[in-house]
Nucleic acid binder design. Structure first.
Length: 297
DNA sequence: GTTTGTTCCTGCTAGC
DNA sequence: TGCTAGCAGGAACAAA
């Protein structure tokens, strides 16, 4: 499940291969990979062919590759199972391959970027770049104050130097939703998914169903610190891989799954107090927490 | 305006 | 062995 660390690993892997590369050809195998694109697959292929990519940028879980001219970008979201893989030119089709870009790079020569996606929740699109309201860089990987229109409503992530902590605190203070739901709301803070929400709440000793407005200011400080710590540690370990659903651009898995304290550890002892981690249904998904050290007050 | 629930999708696994 | 139900979950949208 690609969250911020996994998407950042992919962005960093793509950057050297796509920056300065020209798109020699585009093949759309499955239209469902274009759900965020306005236009047909043929129009998508035609609009990209011949264009030069100038960077690889990311905000939260959204990626984008700005195109020459500075007015638009190829944007991507990996959804649950999307992969962006770097392959040799002419390599055989990947399992669940949806879109292939054939690139001509001035240093690396001919390479292919393959978008593969088992569950088809991910997609690519061409989107217009617009100015950021705060004039800071639109995302990590491109210093310009530009962001794709479809990404403009996404809040900055907690590792972004321009992350607006006051806005985050204000959103919590006026929300009667569960704190976990707020952490998963990409319009309030981006990059956090189910895994890292559970891990950060465990580390901060906060019950996932605690009403956001009832979380004390000093506890929010602790939570933000734990969110950043868990994201940075996962990033350092190459992200979290449970199966083949998340890999970097070379198809390699990350190691953070070995460092999880709560997520996916139902029935196993809490590393802090030894009580069994429980799993409850939450928002059509699962929450994992320690009922002893994450109490609902 | 805010909050909560539904939908999209495929592959794996447990249970019968 | 084969079938079915349940599960995984990001984000947009619908409904309350």
């Amino acid at each position: 499940m690609p969250e911020l660390p996994e998407v950042e690993v992919v962005r960093a892997g793509l950057a050297p291969a796509v920056t300065g590369a020209r798109i020699a050809g585009v093949t759309v195998h499955d239209d469902r990979a274009l759900t965020r694109h306005t236009g047909t697959a043929a129009e998508f292929e035609g609009a990209l062919t011949g264009r030069l990519m100038t960077a690889a940028a990311r905000r939260g879980k959204f990626l984008w590759l700005p195109l020459d001219g500075g007015e638009d970008a190829l944007i991507g979201h990996l959804g649950m199972s999307g992969q962006l893989l770097l392959r040799a030119a002419g390599s055989p089709p990947e399992r669940h391959e949806r879109i292939r870009l054939d690139l001509q790079h001035p240093v690396h020569g001919e390479v292919a970027v393959v978008f593969a996606d088992q569950r088809t929740f991910g997609s690519l699109a061409i989107d217009q770049l617009i100015l950021t309201p705060d004039t800071a860089a639109g995302g990590h990987g491109d210093a310009r104050a530009l962001v794709p229109r479809q990404v403009a409503h996404i809040a900055r992530d907690p590792l972004d130097p321009a992350f607006d902590e006051r806005r985050f605190r204000a959103a919590l203070a006026r929300s009667r939703s569960a704190i976990k739901r707020v952490l998963l709301d990409q319009g309030i803070v981006s990059g956090i998914g189910n895994i890292y929400a559970d891990e950060a709440l465990w580390a901060a000793r906060i019950h996932p169903e605690t009403t956001a407005e009832r979380v004390a200011a000093r506890t929010v400080t602790r939570l933000l610190a734990e969110v950043r710590a868990v994201l940075e540690k996962a990033l350092a370990e190459g992200g979290t891989s449970f199966d083949e659903q998340y890999v970097n651009v070379n198809g390699e898995a990350g190691y953070f799954a070995h460092s999880l304290n709560a997520y996916g550890r139902t029935g196993q002892p809490c590393p802090r107090c030894g009580h069994a981690i429980v799993r409850v249904s939450f928002m059509n998904r699962s929450s994992h927490y320690c009922p002893h050290c994450q109490r609902l007050r």
